Simulated assay, not measured.
Amino acid sequence: MIDKSSPLPIYYQLEEQIKKQIESGELQPGDMLPSEREYAELINISRMTVRQAMNNLVDDGYLYRQKGRGTFVAEKKVEQELGSLTSFTEDMKARGLVPSSKLLSFEIVPAPEKIANQLQIKEYAPVYEIKRIRLADQVPMALEIVYASANLIKGLTEEKVNHSLYQYIEEQLHLKIGHAAQSVEASIASETEGEHLNIRKGSPILLLQRNTYLEDGTPLEFVKSSYRADRYTFTIHIKRQ
């Protein structure tokens, strides 16, 4: 309900009202909102005020626009805590989502110099190169490329990769995963990334690189991932030392 006598700006009140409708489930992902003109006439405010509220909600990821169609409720973003070392499968299950993967390629290749350095193995030593799309509730979330030593992770197959790689490593090979170093940077989607993630070329994405190690310090994997910025957000808790 908009209170024109309130000291809070009307555009802010409208934003909060729409947010509450989204968070309560009254407005569902994919629902189309009334037009700026309809909102303005319904509440008896200016279209400029409505536009400011809508723009802010689009910028904050609550809404998205489709040219010539209108404004719609966006899908909720998936959050991942950067301070914990979990697999994509574990993350999605913890959030009540159904994880799955679409395997693009699975092969053993000779390690190029850069990959050999990351895994601390000899150049041209055999490594798994795994390319896959990671999905949550059948929605593409990330395009991922994993490199791991074939001499360390023995017996890996396409079937095992399609489940949880970490689960196989810890439960079947009895290797204990220790820690990881990860970097995140903003980028835009290439044509290939856009095609696999169902987004337009040039859309914002998050690029991740992760080096994962066993408890004894042995490099386990080197991972490069492209995450949809409209569906994924990374959080971290920082403690003052």
Rank of each mutant, 00 (worst) to 15 (best):
I205W: 09
Q21Y: 04
K67Q: 10
D91K: 05
N211E: 12
Q13M: 05
E79D: 10
V78F: 01
T157G: 03
A180D: 05
L156V: 05
E90S: 11
T235C: 10
A150P: 02
E171T: 14
H179I: 10
I205M: 14
E158I: 05
D3Q: 06
S5L: 08
P34A: 05
T233D: 07
R95F: 07
T86E: 11
E215Y: 12
G83I: 02
T89F: 12
K4V: 07
L208H: 00
R37G: 04
T212C: 09
R51G: 01
I121A: 02
Y39L: 06
I133G: 09
S105P: 11
Y227S: 07
K19I: 07
A53M: 01
P9M: 09
K114F: 14
R240F: 06
N55P: 01
T71G: 05
R69V: 13
A74C: 06
D3F: 10
S164D: 15
R95T: 02
E113Q: 12
N55H: 11
E144I: 01
E129H: 07
S35C: 08
L208G: 02
A136T: 11
S101P: 00
M54T: 11
L85Q: 10
I236L: 14
V184E: 12
E159H: 10
E158A: 13
K224C: 01
L214A: 03
L208D: 00
G83V: 04
I199P: 13
K114H: 14
H179V: 07
L82S: 12
G178W: 00
E195S: 14
A186I: 09
Q13Y: 04
M48H: 11
Y12D: 03
T49R: 03
Q182E: 13
T89D: 08
L63A: 04
H237L: 13
G96Q: 10
T218D: 03
R37L: 12
K114M: 14
Y64V: 03
K131P: 01
P204E: 07
A116R: 06
G68I: 05
N117H: 12
L208I: 12
E41R: 15
S24W: 02
G68E: 05
V184M: 14
D91Y: 08
A94P: 00
P219I: 05
D137E: 12
L173D: 08
